[in-house]
Design a protein around this nucleic acid. Structure first.
Lengths: 180, 180
DNA sequence: ACCATAATGTAGCGACCGCTACAATAGAAA
DNA sequence: TTTCTATTGTAGCGGTCGCTACATTATGGT
């Protein structure tokens, strides 16, 4: 094995940062390579194809986002359901997570267009979020599996409404479905 | 004014059909022109730029979807709130409306990436939906403005969850937040 | 020391992108 | 009928796309 093999993790990290800043669906090899301080030639060499690269990059971003979520909100039961939901919505709306939400909507739209890989990783991210969320529900929450799915649906709705400038409507929806 | 001027409505209709079938964000001038039985040259001539064309096409699609919604679900108060929500979700999930939902998610992701025009038309579509929905609420619904926003958030969440293969979770969310 | 081979750079392929310069055409106005 | 101009076709520009052919390098195994 001559020459040093590339630091895959480092390349993924730099490409991930580029995608978080500039978007997923508009990302192309040459800008990605520049961000990772390499060449499109090498990206194809190491990942096989753009499709495989994007799939691996999405896995990487999903792992990273999960880590960030754990860091921002440690797995402790919330005092009550409404506080739980509000904290999470505030977190996802924060500048630290807004880029993830943009990439998330890119994944969703690609999945809706029929991309299997985007649908698979998107579904896995949702299921991971279910678990993450369940660990933060108040201890006495009845039917936690269903509760996290209800909260998740509302959260996704909020993300969509935020994206088209309807944050006020999203706030009213939260207040109505999860009154303080 | 020599020669016949193009039938703008007909061109929009054909391009709209193409976008509903093949996606919005991946649409480019030459395939759009082919669908409309004209040339990219003429599309630019009549619409000024691709950006202006897409903006007008989105207005057209929004109008059309509003018409289709009215046709599918006439403005009569529903017997109860849960039936109202379930009918609407079933409608948006039907084959007739699934293509609109795909385009909708394309609009949302572009809006999230910072496209002003997508955000504006997306917000307008949501507000139109608020009105449409309010006309179908049961007569005795308290605080209809807030209710439609809550239903809208849930509906958008369902659309997102459906897109990534989490329709089961979406169903459970509906059953939990709007129990029969 | 030498060699096999993994890693990399350079250059470019063919396809597509949005858009435009230029010329031709056709029909209304005179 | 002639002229003027809105409309259209043809061809192509400069750019980007994913990807590859080919040559070169550098290093670990022998």
């Amino acid at each position: 094995m001559p020459r040093k093999t590339i630091n895959r993790e480092d390349v993924l990290k730099k490409m991930g940062a580029h995608v978080l800043e500039h978007g997923l669906n508009t990302a192309s090899l040459r800008p990605l390579a520049k961000a990772a301080e390499t060449s499109d030639r090498m990206l194809i060499y190491h990942f096989g194809s753009k499709e495989a690269l994007i799939a691996e990059l999405l896995q990487f971003l999903a792992r990273n986002m999960a880590l960030e979520l754990d860091k921002a909100l440690p797995p402790e039961p919330a005092p009550d359901l409404n506080a739980c939901l509000r904290d999470i919505v505030a977190l996802l709306r924060s500048p630290a997570f807004a880029p993830f939400m943009r990439v998330w909507l890119d994944i969703v739209s690609s999945a809706a267009q029929g991309s299997i890989s985007h649908s698979v990783i998107g579904g896995a991210m949702i299921e991971g979020f279910f678990q993450w969320l369940q660990g933060r529900l108040p201890d006495d929450t009845p039917d936690p599996e269903t509760t996290v799915r209800a909260m998740m649906a509302l959260i996704e709705g909020v993300v969509v409404l935020d994206a088209v400038g309807q944050s006020d409507a999203a706030d009213r929806a939260i207040a109505h479905l999860f009154p303080i």
